[in-house]
Design a protein around this nucleic acid. Structure first.
Lengths: 251, 251
DNA sequence: CGGGGCTTTGATTGTAGTCAAGAAATGTGG
DNA sequence: CCACATTTCTTGACTACAATCAAAGCCCCG
């Protein structure tokens, strides 16, 4: 864990700015929210389940997974986080962290203390409302994941997962010709979808043979988006992030 | 759908009051949040998926399920709501409702328009912060459900589900001798856990034979809580609903 | 007392899990 | 840059949990 020299102006457009138009004052506030950025190496644990905590994290660069361990040894990945995501917020309501945050790639984060967050809640009604919207979006994502897990077969679930990643990565400009880097092992994808690595392997392989996807190393290409969309049992959500009933701009 | 004459003082202690100490002013505000209470009959659809909406609901009495339909005909129940719950809030971020709300029993609700909610966000930092905490709790519940669905067998999932209901109903005083009414058919429990009614039937039956539970009609008794807790792969969460970093009381 | 929904049970099928081992890819140190 | 070690991927054989299909019994409820 090393502190790095990235200036606050390097902050990526994060969830708020991506989905709502912010005033310059609001953007400045958001940028001053986090502590100085910190680098993490691949596989590093940012924060362990059960650990007492006093902050959330802004993910500035890289991939991080959030997971829950079970006594029997298996684990559930509850979310794959991309740059711009806010990590660890579900643990706000607990004395100890509910999930483990693990760096999937080298990554950069900025801590935001609960105290700082409390100040924001106390003084910035509109940003607070946008925070609520962001949390509701995460909740929707979980509802969709749950729906897929409960009702879809392995290949359908994979379609849902790949299309979702494609959409989120495209928003970050990380998709070229429907191809992107996927730094998850098949084991991890299994932990995400509630399946075994063996079954993920066979399913991916079958999808490749059917021409739905193409793989080379960590790179995956969604070769037949139309077919993947037909395979996916879930509709695409169209978030309306800043409806007109939110608190008005202060400036 | 009939309007009923229940006065606002009849409001049950809902999520906020149950978990944080509110000032009299705050309680009054919350009670004035909803429109006049409305009665719904069993099986009535409060709101359909895809429907354009301008409000959320306070559930004052009875049980309501929130579900997502899949094109192939199956459905996922994302939450079983009990009195005091706030319904339909995930759809705040969408132009149309994400889930269908269906009355499981005769029930009573009060609508809260988005406009009203926006006013609350604009003027009541502490209540807004508590709202955020409530949403995070719902998110945690989804994370746990997901974890159970992805990693637990039918009987383990049933244990998780029954223990969770037991805990929530006990808080409402609806549990006597570890027994409570369960107005869900086995088909519905299946839709909740991502299993078929047949498999639910066999699993419940086996649990009954093993003395974990006892059933008579809609009534279920958790006959061996200790064994159920051992069976459940999930820890019990201890929400810390109003930490000290939240915005201070106004009064 | 009839009927529809719910529960129960059996027989069969299928998707996914388990165990195991070899191949390929990736990473590391000399 | 090569050799070794480790992780990840792939494949096969077998098992098991859960789905499907079908039908009978039960229980409310009108």
């Amino acid at each position: 864990m090393h502190c790095c020299r990235r200036s606050s102006l390097d902050y990526p457009i994060h969830r708020f700015t991506a989905l709502a138009s912010l005033t310059p004052r609001e953007m400045k506030l958001l940028q001053s929210l986090g502590e100085p950025p910190v680098k993490h190496r691949r596989s590093e644990t940012l924060r362990q389940e059960g650990q007492v905590t006093n902050c959330v994290y802004l993910l500035l660069d890289g991939w991080v997974i959030s997971s829950i361990l079970l006594p029997e040894g298996s684990r559930q990945i509850t979310k794959v986080h991309l740059p711009g995501d806010m990590l660890g917020t579900p643990s706000m309501v607990l004395p100890a962290a509910a999930d483990t945050l693990t760096a999937l790639t080298d990554c950069v984060t900025a801590r935001v203390t609960y105290e700082r967050l409390g100040q924001l809640f106390a003084t910035e009604p509109r940003l607070t409302a946008l925070f609520i919207m962001a949390v509701q979006l995460e909740r929707l994502a979980l509802m969709d994941t749950l729906t897929a897990m409960g009702n879809a077969h392995a290949r359908q679930q994979l379609a849902v997962f790949l299309l979702d990643l494609h959409r989120r990565l495209a928003a970050l400009g990380a998709v070229k010709g429907d191809a992107f880097d996927l730094p998850l092992t098949q084991e991890l994808i299994g932990d995400l979808l509630g399946l075994t690595n063996v079954h993920i392997n066979r399913s991916l392989r079958a999808m490749e043979e059917d021409g739905l996807i193409a793989r080379q190393g960590q790179r995956i290409r969604l070769a037949d988006m139309a077919a993947l969309r037909r395979l996916s049992p879930l509709p695409v959500r169209q978030p309306q992030f800043a409806p007109d009933w939110l608190p008005p701009v202060k400036d």
